[in-house]
Design a protein around this nucleic acid. Structure first.
Lengths: 167, 167
DNA sequence: TTGTTTTATGTAATAGTGTAACAGTCAAGC
DNA sequence: GCTTGACTGTTACACTATTACATAAAACAA
């Protein structure tokens, strides 16, 4: 893999920010969002989301699994993958392919197609709204006759802090 | 994994197109491009590129490795991964993370940051130039103070043919 | 040329990521 | 209650990728 394993320190934004009640807000919306999709926010699923929200960074599936197992849920990979896939499916989490990791979505429910910025030095991660990116993609897709259902937009580079250090 | 294993049928474009001399052109450029980077297009590396060009679709690293091994090169994963990583590094190939696969770049040398469109039904893959997408990304990055070095833009959905079939 | 450094290749061993298949369980609707 | 379908859990395994180390070949300097 990269220098980037699910890494134990992939914060969600480069700038410090208070997120005292991010989690509460999101969980409330989550319930609604799940119901809207005709899906159920079961205990494993809910707890998985909480874990991602608490961590507030990208986590590997196996890292999430450890936490779940420790709390009495199943101990096998499918437990984590199913819960994570569910969350991604209904838009409560995102999969960061470059990191083989997952992260809670910070703006669930809002129609958004985020872009992710990943620092190659410190592995920190930032999620940014990217309506313009999506629009450009749609336009390119149209020329091909392609119907977009889901997108993964990830940029690798240097975060402000690491760029500062003159690497 | 996905329904998408390195898959044995991931063509490069949805529309039929003749690419009789794609390969030759690209290989010629490759030499030059390598030299420009102070890098060497060694036999394994060159052959790896040829394999990707011949296949003209996305190939998993192990699939490439099989081919290399059959031709007398090393039989262990690092052989393929090193060659593929090299090609990606200097812009002769792209890594499609959603498919865990690699594909030869069709426009090496040209400053471009491609977007990939992957059909979830047939796994076919299209590479499209996406200057507008890149511009939008740069703009978002600037707001974060982030310096982009490399991007992965992948869209999942339905290709024209599969969309037709009313899935 | 010869010796030295760097870069590249090859192998073995193993770590990490993700799935398929199946059995049991639980909730919702009839 | 009973059926149905969705959800959870487990075993077992497939696939993807890396680390570490030994060898070899090219590039460079003396």
């Amino acid at each position: 893999m990269n220098s980037a394993q699910p890494p134990a320190g992939t914060a969600l934004a480069f700038a410090r920010h208070d997120h005292a009640n991010c989690a509460d807000e999101v969980l409330t919306r989550a319930e609604a969002l799940a119901k809207a999709n005709g899906a159920r926010l079961t205990p494993v699923r809910r707890r998985t989301l909480e874990i991602l929200l608490e961590a507030h960074r990208a986590m590997g599936a196996y890292e999430v699994l450890e936490r779940l197992a420790a709390e009495g849920f199943g101990k096998q990979p499918p437990v984590a993958y199913r819960a994570l896939d569910f969350l991604v499916e209904i838009g409560l989490a995102h999969r960061i392919r470059r990191l083989n990791a997952f992260t809670a979505c910070m703006h669930p429910g809002e129609a958004h197609s985020p872009a992710f910025f990943i620092c190659r030095k410190c592995d920190h991660l930032a999620e940014a709204p990217a309506a313009a990116v999506r629009a450009a993609l749609e336009s390119a897709a149209e020329k091909l006759g392609f119907t977009i259902e889901r997108t993964n937009v990830e940029a690798l580079g240097l975060c402000p802090a690491c760029a500062e250090e003159r690497t």
